[in-house]
Simulated scan of single mutants.
Amino acid sequence: MGPPRHFTASDVVDRVRWQLQSQPPVSNDKTAQASGTHDGGMARGGLSSPVTRVEFVPVRVDSIAHHGRALFGDGAEEQIHHGLSRIQSMLGHEAVVVPAVSGGRLLAERRRLVPWGDALPAGTAALASRPWPGRIPDPQPATVFASLIPVLLLDANKEKVRTDHRGGLIAPPMWFCPGGDPARRRLVAQWAGPWPLRQRWWDADHRLESDRFQLVDGNGEAWLLLLDEQNWWAEARYD
């Protein structure tokens, strides 16, 4: 529902109205009877009776100091909250999320999406402040892929670039293929790495043995890559 200052009568009425607007209308009583009603008049095709009572059930409590008004009023912040709360009321609580930084070495581990209006999970800030050896230093990539994207990194002989037992490159990269398609290959303009990334060697299910690599292709796009035992992957892109 939002911070405590948004529990006024008009706020509550707005949220009820938005939720009802997202329901398909019931044309008449016969339609409601044909489709069946449940939960106090909510028909399968929409609401078939008026709202006469709204009950609040507290889920958690929070300090009012965390939701104080700004020194010079709310202004645009109030309008933003009003609009995002409306989207949540119509599409669901997790339909609007905001990013937060958590802990981890992989960028996907460091990204945390929290529903709008919710506090960060306990311990998130503490995890983010840990050293995490092996993580990418600033500046961070602007685009972090939700899942790793397969790519190809080829040498001058168009063979897949590999590392030796000491972690160095066997041959320097010359061609980069986004999406893993050799037909889309681009020249490698600049590159750096690889840097070994090893964690949880004792855990067979969560063990990570990879090498990180940065490159700029011939189109001027910069990428952050991962090499596992078999394949190259794009973890992020520097936009």
Rank of each mutant, 00 (worst) to 15 (best):
R53A: 05
R186N: 06
G41T: 02
A189D: 09
L154G: 05
D203L: 11
I87C: 04
P173F: 03
G104N: 07
P99M: 12
V26G: 01
T37F: 05
G40D: 10
R185Y: 01
V151I: 13
V59S: 08
D181R: 11
V216D: 13
W18K: 05
E229T: 13
A95T: 11
D228F: 08
L91Q: 11
D228T: 10
L120V: 12
Q214R: 12
E109N: 10
L154F: 06
Q33F: 10
Y238R: 02
F56Q: 09
H165F: 07
G220S: 04
L224N: 09
G2W: 07
E55C: 13
E55G: 03
V51M: 02
P121S: 06
R162F: 00
Q23L: 15
F7M: 11
D14Q: 15
L224P: 03
G220R: 02
L197I: 10
Q199Y: 06
D228S: 10
E229P: 00
A108R: 15
P137W: 08
N231C: 00
G36A: 07
L152T: 13
R60D: 07
L226M: 03
A125P: 03
R86V: 14
D14Y: 06
I64T: 14
H206L: 15
G75P: 05
A189E: 10
V61I: 11
G218C: 00
P196K: 11
A156I: 11
S85Y: 05
F176N: 03
K30E: 13
W191V: 04
L107W: 09
L91R: 13
H93R: 09
A126V: 05
S48A: 15
E159L: 06
A43E: 07
P133K: 06
P178Q: 13
G193S: 07
Y238W: 04
Q23W: 12
L187T: 08
R53C: 02
A142M: 09
L224Y: 14
G117M: 05
G134M: 07
R186V: 00
E209C: 04
A146L: 10
A126G: 00
H66N: 13
S85C: 11
V51W: 04
R60N: 02
P3K: 09
T37G: 15
P141W: 08
P172D: 13
T37W: 00
D217F: 04
H93W: 01
T143D: 12
Q190F: 00
T37M: 15
C177V: 05
R212V: 02
S10K: 12
V101I: 15
W202P: 01
A125L: 12
D74K: 01
P196I: 07
A43P: 04
D205A: 14
E221K: 06
P115K: 05
P194L: 03
R17P: 01
I136S: 01
R53N: 03
S129D: 15
G179T: 07
A222R: 11
F72Y: 05
D228Q: 10
L197N: 05
V161G: 09
A192W: 12
W233E: 01
V54D: 03
S129I: 00
S27R: 15
S48Y: 01
F213Y: 15
L169Q: 09
R112S: 07
G180L: 04
G40W: 09
P141R: 12
A142Q: 08
R105D: 04
Q199F: 05
G45T: 13
W132P: 11
G2N: 11
V96P: 01
L71E: 14
V144T: 14
Y238A: 00
G2C: 07
R186C: 08
R15Y: 05
H6W: 14
M1N: 03
L225K: 09
E235R: 02
